[in-house]
Design a protein around this nucleic acid. Structure first.
Length: 421
RNA sequence: GGAGAGGUGGCCGAGUGGUUUAAGGCGCACGCUUGGAAAGCGUGUAAGGUUAAUAGCUUUCGCAGGUUCGAAUCCUGUCCUCUCCGCCA
């Protein structure tokens, strides 16, 4: 959520920045509503002040046994006026807040301006150190041939997009999760969490999935809960409504979670195999940091995630997203993509974002600085990493001519195998 | 799912309609005192909105409504926590 004061003071430059992301955004209605609401607030405050004063006087008179009933009629009228104004105020401030919740974050000044993914910038390209000496097979074929995943039975149980991992496939999936968690814990100063997978609407508002992207989430209507699309949601909301002390910052949290996405609107896209599924596994990294350091923290987050890709011996590139391709809550974002030689596609396996104070405002997550001043902190997150596409890229990259899969050295102690055949 | 108890400031806790402008305590900060410390004494100690303001005004006693001139206090709904019973991995 953008600070209303910021909009009040810099609406024309903000609107320009937001239009780089989406031409259709306008702040006009918000500015009008804000002016209107502030007038109303002023009026209401003055009347409340009057009412408080008079009520107190009645109290004093009563305690002296000198009450005078004639004043009540006058105050009744005042009281009714206040009630009407309060109702109006409630309604208008909710409307303003609802409008603000629909406005995406302002792109950081360093973000390249552009309309579509075509204008994204490749900032790092680590391509092909290795050659595959056969025509690479797709992970779908490899997984089926080696009996690692049963897509049909998954579909029988739950529908398309719910892969059933099996045998060494199930093991590899579990190993990937453990390997990634251990890597972050061993090399960086993270606290591990295991979070709820169902969250209240408020939590999804904090991180930006709600109210705008309701359609993308699985909703358990009977209980009013949503299945998380990423552990970012519960992790970030750990500090909902908190005021953190400076000494506690930065905070680095991580969690594995299953992730649930309806993928509404992307039917027919990447339907085969593991490229786009409704349920998948991911290790998520979340940082709570003081504002001055958030861009350094973003760079180190990207470095941390790419280190994993090095260890998994995958070819990858780092993409800096342009303004038009930026996610709703992000001020700046890097995507990590791995090369899948069988699919002959780049697969997005991580997204590392700085949200600045966008989420912390929505979730009321603050900190106290050295002068005792309270302000919103900055949040960041990055996948570290999402398994299904890693799984796919691993099979396709490390396949041998005979159809077996070489396990990267770093994973071998976890797998207890050097290859899957 | 049933029955009961309870949600008040950083923490504990008083408060059943009006000087509550939330008592008192703990903790914390600063000062006095001291060779230094402890104890003692004193002062201060929530967040939001408005504002140049750390002035004033205002909102907030889980949350949302309601009654009343006036609500932490009364009423209704709701959420959460705890205890017991039932069911259960």
């Amino acid at each position: 959520m953008i600070d209303i004061k910021n909009i009040r003071e810099h609406h024309s430059s903000l609107e320009k920045d937001l239009k780089n992301r989406d031409q259709s955004i306008s702040l006009k209605k918000i500015i009008e509503a804000d002016i209107n609401l502030r007038e109303l607030t002023k009026k209401l405050n003055d009347l409340q002040s009057e009412q408080n004063k008079q009520s107190k006087e009645i109290g004093i008179l009563k305690s002296q046994g000198k009450s005078d009933d004639s004043i009540f009629a006058k105050l009744k009228k005042l009281s009714n006026t206040i009630k009407d104004l309060e109702a109006e105020h409630r309604e208008k401030s909710k409307k303003l807040k609802d409008m603000l919740l629909e406005i995406p974050n302002i792109p950081h000044e360093s973000v390249p301006v552009g309309k579509t993914e075509k204008e994204n910038i490749i900032v790092k390209d680590c391509v092909s150190k290795k050659k595959i000496d056969c025509k690479p097979k797709s992970h779908v074929d490899l997984a089926q041939d080696l009996d690692l995943i049963d897509f049909e039975v998954g579909a029988k149980i739950s529908g398309a997009g719910f892969p059933l991992y099996k045998g060494n496939g199930a093991l590899l999936e579990r190993v990937l999760i453990n390997f990634m968690i251990d890597f972050h814990l061993k090399n960086y100063n993270y606290t591990e969490f295991f979070t709820p997978f169902l969250v209240k609407p408020n939590s999804a508002i904090t991180t930006g999935q709600l109210p705008k992207f309701e359609e993308d989430m699985y909703h358990v209507e009977k209980d009013g809960l949503y299945l998380i699309p990423t552990a970012e949601v519960p992790l970030t909301n750990i500090h909902q409504d908190d005021i953190l002390e400076l000494i506690d910052l930065p905070k680095y949290y991580l969690a594995y979670s299953a992730c649930f996405r309806r993928e509404a609107g992307s039917y027919g896209k990447d339907t085969r195999g593991l490229l786009r599924v409704h349920q998948f596994n991911k290790v998520e990294l979340v940082k709570f940091v003081r504002p001055e350091s958030s861009y350094d923290e973003l760079e180190s987050l990207v470095g941390q995630a790419t280190k994993l890709l090095d260890l998994l011996e995958l070819d990858y590139r780092v993409i800096e997203l342009c303004s038009g391709d930026l996610g709703f809550s992000a001020a700046k974002c890097y995507d990590l993509e791995v090369w899948a030689p069988g699919e002959e596609k780049w697969l997005e396996v991580s997204s590392c974002s700085n949200f600045e104070d966008f989420q912390s405002r929505r979730g009321n997550i603050r900190f106290r600085d050295e002068d005792g001043k309270i302000d919103y902190l900055h949040t960041l997150n990055g996948s570290g990493l999402a398994t299904p596409r890693i799984f796919a890229a691993l099979l396709e990259t490390h396949q041998n001519q005979d159809g077996s899969i070489k396990i990267p050295v770093a994973l071998q102690p976890y797998m207890g195998l050097a290859e899957i055949k």
